[in-house]
Amino acid sequence: MNREQEQQKMEVVGFFGVYQESFKIVQSHTKIFTQITFILILPLLSFIFFIFKQQSNLLFNEILHDSHELTNINNHDTPQYQHLIRKISSKWDTFLFFNLISFTLILIFSILSTTAVVYTVATSIYAAGKETMISFTEVITGIVPKTWKRLMVTFLCAILDFLAYNFLAMLVTWELAKPVRNYFGVAGSIIMVFLYLSGFVYLIMVWKISSVVTLLDGKACGFEAMKKARN
């Protein structure tokens, strides 16, 4: 089957066909997908997310506890008050440092895992029937250095979109929350939450597809890639 026929086949596989084709691709290239999973995806999910997130939550809870104690001290000139101020300030620095490290590692592993998966799938489809298949080492040493900058630009543009969406959602909620709650009660609140989550999931879909567009399109990145992803 040539490339054009393979592309036409993939365009009409349907919802369940996507999962079927994905399973076939993973099954036919078990080695590289196993390497991607254990070297890139599992560290992203386990070490980075759980360890750093748990530590971050622990620090934040300690900051809240110390801040509560601080509000109970009326005299600001006491040694206890000054000690709590320094303690809270130090914990805030640690909290921000942990989140910065976590964000950086998530960005790095996201770029690596996205690149590895997209190029592996692309080569398995477009190079169907050929004996040669891209290796994990080739992805990390050859493809990632050429694509990480464009992928990071797309990632940062997606972050800006999420920030703008949440800011707009807060403004709308501020204006409509009370009228909706008064006239429609719980049902109105549920509708507002559903609409917000629908938009949030849509943005996630656009971000994921734009990452694929960035990797496979040599020119598009950032908002241009997101525009193509929406289309």
Rank of each mutant, 00 (worst) to 15 (best):
V117E: 04
L96I: 01
L112E: 07
W92Y: 11
K87I: 03
A116W: 08
I140A: 06
S89A: 14
T115H: 00
S102T: 11
L107S: 15
I85C: 15
I125C: 07
V118D: 03
Y126S: 07
V118P: 04
L84W: 01
I101E: 00
I134S: 05
L112A: 11
Q80V: 08
T147K: 12
V144Y: 06
F98G: 01
T137D: 14
S113N: 10
V117A: 09
S124L: 06
T132Q: 07
T120M: 02
Y119C: 08
A128L: 13
F95A: 01
I143T: 11
F98P: 01
T141S: 12
I143R: 02
K87W: 07
G142L: 06
I111T: 09
K87G: 02
V144D: 06
I101R: 01
I134A: 04
T141P: 00
K91V: 02
V139P: 02
S110M: 10
K146T: 13
S89L: 15
S135I: 05
A116Y: 03
E131A: 09
W92C: 14
R86M: 11
K91E: 05
T147H: 06
V118G: 00
T123N: 13
I143E: 04
S110N: 14
S113L: 03
L96P: 00
P79L: 12
A128F: 07
